[in-house]
Computed example of a mutant assay.
Amino acid sequence: MNRTVLALSLTAVVSIAAVTEAAAWTRTGSTTTPRGTYSSAAAGGCAGGTCSRSAVATGPYGGSVARSGSVTRTAPGTYNYARTTTGPYGNSVSRSGTVSRY
């Protein structure tokens, strides 16, 4: 399972890096379930060889989870990535690394 998640994450990182320069975007939305309404907002963009994204999701009782990250092309076929996820109690997890297609 961890290898599958890692492979999907790396694929997403390379896909994000392929977005054209200055391609900024924002999204908002909400979902209503029997437990309440969940809302989310996200924004991202690319400039100077770096693409970044940040998002936050808030549950019906006010708890939020936030994630931010970026991908930078360092050489043809090589990318550095970093991301941080912060949970509703302030704990966070950070990941970073390098992906190469060779």
Rank of each mutant, 00 (worst) to 15 (best):
L10I: 05
L10T: 05
L10H: 08
T11S: 05
T11W: 04
T11D: 06
T11G: 06
T11H: 03
A12L: 11
A12T: 09
A12N: 11
A12V: 08
A12Q: 10
V13A: 13
V13P: 01
V13C: 09
V13T: 14
V14D: 07
V14H: 05
V14T: 12
V14M: 10
V14E: 08
V14Q: 07
S15T: 11
S15L: 12
I16R: 15
I16F: 13
I16N: 14
A17T: 05
A17L: 08
A17N: 13
A17R: 11
A17K: 11
A17H: 11
A17Q: 12
A17C: 12
A17W: 04
A18Q: 15
A18C: 14
A18D: 15
V19E: 15
V19I: 15
V19N: 15
V19H: 14
T20I: 15
T20K: 15
T20Y: 13
T20H: 14
E21K: 13
E21R: 13
E21V: 14
A23H: 12
A23K: 12
A23I: 13
A23L: 14
A23W: 11
A23Q: 13
A23G: 14
A24T: 08
A24Q: 08
A24P: 02
A24S: 07
A24W: 02
A24C: 02
W25A: 10
W25I: 07
W25H: 04
W25V: 08
W25F: 13
T26W: 00
T26S: 03
T26M: 00
R27S: 11
R27M: 06
R27K: 12
T28F: 00
T28D: 09
T28Y: 01
T28Q: 11
T28I: 09
G29L: 04
G29D: 07
G29R: 03
G29K: 04
S30D: 01
S30W: 00
S30Q: 04
S30N: 02
S30E: 03
S30H: 00
T31D: 07
T31G: 03
T31S: 08
T31P: 02
T32W: 05
T32I: 10
T32D: 06
T32S: 12
T32A: 09
T32F: 07
T32K: 07
T33C: 08
T33E: 10
T33L: 12
P34C: 09
P34Y: 07
P34V: 11
R35T: 12
R35P: 04
R35K: 09
R35S: 12
R35N: 10
R35G: 07
G36C: 03
G36K: 01
G36D: 08
G36M: 02
T37G: 02
T37H: 04
T37I: 01
T37M: 02
T37S: 05
T37N: 05
T37D: 05
T37R: 06
Y38Q: 00
Y38L: 01
Y38T: 04
Y38E: 01
Y38W: 08
Y38V: 03
Y38H: 02
Y38N: 00
S39W: 00
S39T: 09
S39D: 00
S39N: 02
S39H: 01
S39G: 02
S40M: 02
S40D: 06
S40Y: 05
S40V: 02
A41R: 12
A41N: 09
A41T: 10
A41V: 05
A42Y: 01
A42C: 13
A42D: 10
